[in-house]
């Protein structure tokens, strides 16, 4: 009797293990398949010219005719840089405020709530908003609007992760610094922020990875362009927008280049994620007290 129940339990448990193993294998397999497919399609399309030439505007000729995506690669990097220039300081300052100054002040609760809501807003909403506020008034797509839309997505994510990371900094550091005659701002700048630098940077990178793959907010703000121009008031290219454009193109040569764009995008995200892991691993190793 007892042994029978035991064996039933064993069967159930073995089944559960097998089931979850199968599910994991399935997920990994699908993922590997997708990656492999992207790699297969992308590698075939990628070439030196992909990085060095802009679209020719003539998709009908031989396979080389559509040109590369130099403009889009540079455009994405430029947009990320501009968005970071605004979104990172804003996010970090808000996180510092929430963790170090707000306390139980009335502004703290609403700020936290707004950040959480914003971090979850569908990006198409950000796109439409950017279109209404930053495109329509100036009469056209422009790089500023694109960067602003991305910054708007980044800031709340960075604010909340920064806050969480600063909260993990032991109060004994703050007390030690204040007791030595440091002001509150000196304490934050010289002790608290450096102590949380690794994990805070991780939050920044994750926010970057998130917006690097965004398409919807850019479609309505930066628009797209076949050239990258130093005039940021003009429509501005980006990888995601260009891929979107080409992927639905009737011309096979353009669809081919889209695959290369996807591959570059995946490589960018993978690089950011790997950098995050490396960073986390290093800060963990460093923080380990003896």
């Amino acid at each position: 009797m007892a042994t029978q129940r035991l064996s039933i339990r064993r069967v159930i448990s073995a089944g559960a293990i097998a089931g979850s193993a199968a599910a994991s294998v399935a997920i990994v397999a699908v993922l590997a398949g997708v990656l492999w497919y992207i790699l297969w399609r992308g590698v075939g399309a990628i070439s030196w010219e992909f990085f060095t030439t802009d679209p020719t505007g003539d998709p009908t000729g031989d396979p080389a005719a559509p040109g590369g995506m130099r403009h889009a690669v540079l455009g994405t990097l430029a947009l990320l840089l501009m968005a970071s220039a605004v979104g990172v300081p804003m996010g970090i300052l808000t996180g510092v405020y929430l963790s170090e100054y707000a306390g139980e002040r009335w502004l703290a609760g609403p700020t936290r709530f707004v950040c959480d809501v914003l971090a979850g807003v569908p990006s198409i909403v950000v796109g439409i908003l950017g279109y209404e506020l930053l495109v329509v008034p100036v009469g056209g797509f422009n790089a500023y609007a694109g960067a602003a839309a991305l910054a708007f997505i980044m800031a709340p994510i960075i604010a909340r992760t920064t806050e969480e990371m600063l909260r993990l900094v032991p109060d004994s550091y703050r007390a030690g610094s204040l007791a030595l005659g440091a002001s509150k701002s000196q304490t934050i700048v010289r002790v608290v922020l450096p102590a949380a630098a690794g994990p805070t940077l991780t939050g920044v990178m994750l926010a970057l990875a998130r917006v690097a793959g965004e398409t919807a907010p850019l479609l309505f703000t930066a628009g797209g362009a076949r050239l990258i121009s130093a005039d940021l008031g003009q429509p501005f290219p980006s990888l995601t927008q260009q891929v979107f454009d080409y992927a639905t193109s009737p011309f096979p040569s353009q669809r081919e280049v889209a695959w290369a764009g996807v591959l570059v995008l995946i490589a960018l995200l993978l690089t950011i994620n790997l950098a995050v892991r490396l960073l986390l691993w290093r800060t963990r190793a460093r923080a380990k007290p003896r």
Binding site: P170, S172, Y173, A175, A179, V191, A195
Partner: peptide, 12 residues
Amino acid sequence: GMVFQKPNPFPM
């Protein structure tokens, strides 16, 4: 100056 119960050197 003040010395605390638990040693609290900064992480530097």
